[in-house]
C-alpha cells in the first residue's frame, strides 16, 4: 500500500510504531484546546464563607480528598474528587484544630486540617491539594546509584554516524558560502 507522505496526519505513518505514546488518538478525535501559558489555578471550589461561630477557618460541609486514580487519557481531564466517610474512635477526640502532614497523593501533595468540636470531627479543610494532573519531577537521590565521572578523551573517528549539536541553517549557509567563496578565488 503506498505511503501517503503528504497525508494530514501522522497516524497513517506511525500506526505500526511499537512505542506509541498512549495519548495519541485518531485525527478526527476532539481537537485540543489551546495551550495556555502555565498558570496556577486558585483555591479549591469546596470552600464556603465562614460562619460567625466557626473557628479560624471555613467549615467545609463535605469531605473532599482526592485519591490516586489511573492517569487520565487526556491532558485536560478535570481532577476528580471522591467522597469519603470517616469513623471516629469510640472515645472521641479533644477539641481543637489539627493539621496533618503534607502527604504525597501520587498526583501531588495534599495536606488536611481537621476541626474537632464536642469530641467529634466536624469539618476538614484541604490546605494543599494537587491542582493539576501532573507528575512532580523529584529526584530521589538516595535511591540512585553513585554515578562516576570520567575525563573525556578522543576515540577513533571511524564511526558510521555522529551525534552532537549542529549549526543553525543561517550559520551553515554563511559558513558554506564563505568556503565556496574561498574555493572559487
Amino acid at each position: 500500500m503506498p505511503i501517503e507522505v503528504n497525508a494530514d496526519t501522522t497516524s497513517s505513518i506511525a500506526a505500526a510504531a511499537k512505542s506509541e505514546p498512549a495519548i495519541v488518538s485518531p485525527p478526527q478525535a476532539a481537537k485540543l484546546v489551546p495551550l495556555p501559558p502555565p498558570k496556577q489555578d486558585p483555591a479549591p471550589a469546596a470552600e464556603s464563607a465562614p460562619t460567625p461561630d466557626a473557628p479560624t477557618f471555613a467549615v467545609t460541609p463535605a469531605v473532599y480528598i482526592p485519591i490516586p486514580q489511573p492517569r487520565p487519557e487526556y491532558p485536560q481531564a478535570k481532577a476528580r474528587v471522591i467522597h469519603t466517610g470517616m469513623k471516629l474512635a469510640a472515645g472521641g477526640y479533644a477539641d481543637g484544630v489539627y493539621t496533618g502532614p503534607a502527604a504525597d497523593a501520587y498526583y501531588g501533595i495534599i495536606q488536611i486540617q481537621a476541626l474537632v468540636q464536642g469530641g467529634r470531627l466536624t469539618a476538614l479543610k484541604v490546605l494543599k491539594y494537587p491542582n493539576d494532573r501532573r507528575t512532580s519531577v523529584s529526584i530521589n537521590r538516595q535511591a540512585l546509584p553513585m554515578l562516576r565521572d570520567e575525563a573525556i578523551s578522543a576515540q577513533s573517528a571511524d564511526v558510521d554516524i555522529i551525534s552532537g549539536a549542529t549549526l543553525t541553517s543561517k550559520a551553515f549557509i554563511q559558513s558554506l558560502g564563505g568556503a565556496l567563496k574561498k574555493a572559487s578565488s
Binding site: 494530514d8 496526519t9 501522522t10 495519548i23 485525527p27 481537537k31 495551550l35 501559558p37 491532558p75
Partner: peptide, 30 residues
C-alpha cells in the same frame, strides 16, 4: 485558530504537552 490546526501540528503539540507534564515544566515549548 486551534480548530484549524493540521493533524500533524496537533500531534506535536500533544506530545509537547505530555512531555511538559512528565518533566515538571523543564520541557516547555512556550
Amino acid at each position: 485558530p486551534v480548530r484549524d490546526w493540521s493533524g500533524q501540528m496537533i500531534d506535536v503539540m500533544r506530545i509537547a504537552e505530555q512531555t511538559r507534564r512528565e518533566t515538571d515544566g523543564y520541557f516547555d515549548i512556550h
